[in-house]
Amino acid sequence: MKTTLFLILLSLGVATAQSQTSFYDFTVKTLEGEPFELSSLRGKKVMVVNTASKCGLTPQYEQLQAIYEQYGGDDFEIIGFPANNFMNQEPGTAEEIAEFCQLNYGVTFPMMEKISVKGDDQHPLYQWLTQKSKNGVTESKVQWNFQKFLIGPDGRLEKVIPPKTKPDDSEIIDWITSGANE
Rank of each mutant, 00 (worst) to 15 (best):
V117T: 05
Q147G: 10
V142R: 01
F100I: 00
M87C: 04
L129Y: 00
Q122K: 15
G119S: 01
G80P: 10
F81K: 07
E69N: 09
T51E: 01
G56I: 00
H123F: 15
E99P: 00
P82W: 14
E62M: 15
Y61N: 02
G136P: 15
N84P: 15
S116F: 07
I78H: 10
P110N: 12
H123G: 07
T108C: 02
D121T: 04
K45L: 06
W128Y: 11
D121I: 09
E113F: 11
S133A: 11
L57G: 10
S140E: 15
G73M: 07
E96N: 08
N88Y: 15
A83Y: 07
D121K: 15
I79E: 06
Q60D: 03
C55A: 12
K44T: 09
H123V: 09
N84G: 14
Y68A: 10
A98H: 07
S116K: 09
T138P: 00
V142Q: 12
E90P: 04
L57N: 07
M111R: 01
G72H: 08
M87Y: 07
G119Q: 01
K44L: 11
Y71H: 08
L64H: 07
E62T: 03
E69R: 11
T130S: 08
I67H: 14
V137H: 13
H123C: 10
K132I: 13
V48T: 03
K118C: 13
T108Y: 04
F86K: 12
Y61A: 02
Q143Y: 02
K45E: 10
Q143K: 10
V48A: 05
W144E: 02
E90Y: 05
S116N: 07
N84D: 05
I78N: 14
K114P: 10
I67S: 14
V49F: 03
L41N: 14
P91I: 13
P91M: 13
W128R: 14
Q70G: 02
H123Q: 15
K134T: 08
Q127F: 05
P124K: 00
G119P: 02
P91V: 08
L129M: 03
D120K: 11
K114N: 04
G43D: 06
Q147T: 10
M87G: 05
Q102S: 13
G80D: 06
I67V: 11
I79A: 09
M112R: 05
V49W: 05
L103Y: 01
N104S: 13
Q65R: 09
F109G: 03
F100D: 03
G56T: 00
W144C: 02
C55G: 12
G80E: 07
F76C: 14
Q131I: 01
F81T: 12
L41Y: 02
V49E: 04
T51H: 01
K134R: 14
L129Q: 00
Q147R: 09
I78F: 10
P59C: 01
V46A: 15
K54H: 06
T58D: 06
P59Q: 03
E77Q: 11
